[in-house]
Nucleic acid binder design. Sequence first.
DNA 1: AAGATAAGCAACCGCCCCGAT
DNA 2: AATCGGGGCGGTTGCTTATCT
Length: 209
Amino acid sequence: MDKKPCKSQEVEVRKGPWTMEEDLILINYIADHGEGVWNSLAKAAGLKRTGKSCRLRWLNYLRPDVRRGNITPEEQFLIMELHTKWGNRWSKIAKHLPGRTDNEIKNYWRTRIQKHMNKPAEVCYSNQSDCELLDQQASSSQLPTNTTNADFMGTSYSPLSSFDYYNNIEAFSGQQQQQQQIMLQSPSNQEDNYWNMEDIWSMQILNGN
DNA sequence: AAGATAAGCAACCGCCCCGAT
DNA sequence: AATCGGGGCGGTTGCTTATCT
């Protein structure tokens, strides 16, 4: 991540993980000037990043309304439901999960759900015991035991299984949609974010900005 | 305890679309 | 109508962390 020496007149472009300093520059700039043309914004803010990189960083991480933390079972259900409807239209799906980004949903799908589905699906969906085996595998890696989502709506839960989903989708939908409505309205569900704008601002204070 | 392997995720790449000129 | 640049999107990569042996 070190800056390369600039021998030419070309503007060096940084790649790779963002530093906290860069984050703060971007946040401060957007706080002062708002979002705009990303390429110009990157230059004006003094960031040696491409406009695309700044946009991605802002949209996926720095935006104040980005939710972080575990995908709830309700969100998982919604993702699966919308994916059956729209396929890999991640941004479209993300619009229905406030605070979640397309990148996060895409990653979640590929690492948690698709992997699950790539296993002999015909066995899984036709045989509950096989499915339960898969779900045991999945649940062991899916959520940490201390997840705050376990207390969602005052009830404990286990992650939705592929069997549950593909065999009981209609039975679930009414109940889940009801819970989804409540979840989306409840500010308390923001609590499991590990990083939000307030954290950033408090860090800025520490940094004397 | 150490190395190997798997899983998770942040970030980049490249294509496509759309609006401005 | 053609061209160009910016933004959006889905796919992919590669690094970090967790788990297993």
